[in-house]
């Protein structure tokens, strides 16, 4: 299935430019599994997406937990706790 991934703020900066991507992922079944799968891509990914970091997730632009199921065409985002207002 095809998944697009977006990163924001501190997570985006830690990974460097051009890391937003779209790819075929037939392994991870949930948002949490996708986070672990991405974290294994490089030490940089591992540090940015580590479970030591406060990372929040959204699926199709709605906040979600790690057990959210992935589906074809999903847009998954990883970012730190929000600080607007």
């Amino acid at each position: 299935m095809k998944i697009s991934v977006r990163y924001f703020a501190k997570v985006r900066e830690a990974l460097g430019p051009g890391e937003d991507l779209s790819f075929e992922a037939d392994g991870p079944a949930t948002v949490g599994a996708l986070r672990d799968w991405l974290a294994a891509r490089s030490p940089r990914h591992g540090a940015a997406l580590s479970h030591e970091q406060a990372v929040r997730t959204a699926c199709d632009q709605v906040m979600c937990g790690a057990d959210e199921a992935l589906y074809d065409g999903a847009e998954v985002a990883f970012f730190p706790p929000v600080t607007g207002g």
Binding site: R35, H51, A54, V55, R56, V62, M63, G65, A66
Partner: peptide
Amino acid sequence: PDAEGQGQGSK
């Protein structure tokens, strides 16, 4: 620090 378990039933 870990997002595990956050947002139970959030959708």
